[in-house]
Design a protein around this nucleic acid. Structure first.
Lengths: 242, 242
DNA sequence: CATTTGTCTTTTGTCTTATATAAGACTGTA
DNA sequence: TACAGTCTTATATAAGACAAAAGACAAATG
């Protein structure tokens, strides 16, 4: 592998593997060539390939099975993977997503800023209802710039059951990294209250997140509102002064 | 390093280094011997030591500076390190902790269970108020079994400004790993409302956490209530149907 | 015939050795 | 003293040898 950009070899391998995944050289859950083989391809040792793949494994792009191979991890929605209080239904039932709508809106000032768009830029707004065992437990709203994701349509969103990361990936070649999540507690507004069947003003857990692609460019903004179930954990029964 | 317990070498090194830190062989922010030297000590190669230290670095036990050395990271409170909405005050001012009290209570059923104590076991309850720029933004309640931490007293807690992980470490040799955090949104109860100067019922972000030691034994339970600041982020201004 | 056991191949996982790079201390010189 | 080289020692990277695991398939076993 040619010494370009003055980065360590294994990091160059990371980039190369990523771009080959992007070029759809290997599909989801399909094994890559073995580390030894990749090493021969790139002209580096197995150990170097390994260190590169290590990074992609912790990023969640790949997964490994000893003695079997290294596989491309399918993109999946952050919330679908999360173990949040309301999402961990009885028996660990997986949450289901119900697409509510997909409309175009104009970005507010702050949002345009964080997404690197000009003020008032057109954004797609995808809204999903999250259900566990039939009950509505959460609401998610995903915002992506039309500029980066042109010609989005409801049909394709629906096809993928609202899995936006997967959509960005398959149709636009944009691989999203999980962004850092900010947590807030907010009172339910009219809209959320109706959909989640709670009182207006009831506390909801809000997850705000900015996802970037692997080059660090901000791509998708999303906000989720989650119902907190009632079982207020009572830590202790009686007290005595120290 | 003798082949004991049938674990990989580097993992045995992890355990050995941890126990030496526990034995106070090196203090906080003091450099360990070099990787090469440790390797000679343990009878393994520098690379193996490196892999072991890697783990401890991601765990937050150690930190490195290339060309200089590897250092013991001081224990610090999870919340003090966190970048939570209310904790990231203007200009990134660090939150201050104000000790409210330290009392003994009896564990409820669930709590006794998760802490591996018998029902009704005596727990220390340490309560702290979190301030940023003078304003009360949060409340933390920490529960630890008296059985594991005997003879705790207010003086020592106060000395360390309520830094419980540091206390467990210095006085009891128990190194706490950051446990996974569960997030909830709860209405402020009387007590919280008064301390945080909010209305009863106002949404608070609740962080619930079980910290274990490095052997995986549950040690400390803690709950924090954080005020969410008002600046409701308004993502968009106008909408049109798709 | 069904089931287990062995063995062979391919894969990831571990470990060592060699070398590169970074940081700071030291030293000679203007 | 100020500064530039260089030396020492630390972490970082790279390559390759070898171990362990998984699955396929053949041979043994009831």
């Amino acid at each position: 592998m040619a010494k370009l950009s003055h980065q360590p070899l294994y990091r160059q391998v990371v980039r190369e593997v990523l771009s080959r995944i992007e070029a759809a050289e290997w599909r989801d859950d399909e094994p890559l060539p073995s580390e030894t083989e990749l090493g021969k391809n790139f002209g580096v040792s197995q150990g170097t390939v390994r260190k590169a793949l290590d990074e992609l494994v912790v990023e969640g792009v790949l997964y490994r099975r000893q003695g079997v191979g290294t596989f491309v991890a399918g993109t999946s929605d952050f919330l679908a993977r999360s173990r949040f209080t309301p999402l961990t239904g009885v028996g660990g039932e997986a949450p289901k997503f119900e697409l509510l709508g997909c409309v175009r809106i104009n970005a507010g000032e702050q949002l345009a800023e964080v997404l690197g768009q000009r003020r008032g830029a057109v954004l797609w707004q995808v809204r999903k209802l999250i259900r566990v065992a039939g009950a509505a437990v959460g609401l998610e709203e995903i915002l992506l710039p039309e500029r980066s994701f042109p010609d989005l349509d409801m049909r394709r969103v629906r096809e993928l059951k609202g899995n936006v990361p997967e959509l960005c990936w398959r149709d636009y070649g944009v691989r999203l990294k999980d962004g850092e999540v900010r947590y807030r507690a907010v009172p339910a507004a009219q809209a959320e209250a109706r959909l989640l069947q709670v009182e207006v003003g009831e506390p909801l857990l809000q997850l705000v997140r900015l996802s970037r692609d692997f080059d660090g460019r901000p791509q998708v903004w999303s906000v989720a509102w989650l119902k907190t179930e009632r079982d207020a954990f009572e830590p202790a029964t009686s007290a005595e002064q120290d």
